[in-house]
């Protein structure tokens, strides 16, 4: 079974990228407060900070489990 960290990591990288890029193209500040906070930019980066290590650890675990398979198992895949 696929290491779950991989799809979760990729999902948050994609969403993080969508929101971060959008925040740069069209900065959106939090409405109804005095402070000018480009929340999309900050939160997009938070999503990337979460998504990237998840993807790396998930990918590493996938590689490890592929290498650990016996030759017989490999032949069936």
């Amino acid at each position: 079974m696929i290491d779950l960290r991989l799809p979760i990591g990729i999902f948050f990288i994609l969403v993080g990228l969508i929101i971060t890029i959008y925040s740069i193209i069209a900065p959106a500040y939090v409405p109804h407060i005095k402070e000018h906070i480009n929340i999309d930019l900050y939160w997009g980066i938070v999503l990337l900070i979460f998504g990237i290590p998840m993807t790396i650890f998930g990918w590493m675990a996938e590689q490890k489990s592929k290498n650990a398979r016996t030759p017989e198992e490999k032949s069936t895949h």
Binding site: V15, I18, I19, Y22, S23, A26, A28, Y29, V30, P31, H32, I33, I39, D40, W43, G44
Partner: peptide, 11 residues
């Protein structure tokens, strides 16, 4: 609705 701008609102 009050505090989320586009992007974050989608999330």
């Amino acid at each position: 609705a009050r505090y989320y701008p586009a992007g974050l609102l989608g999330l």
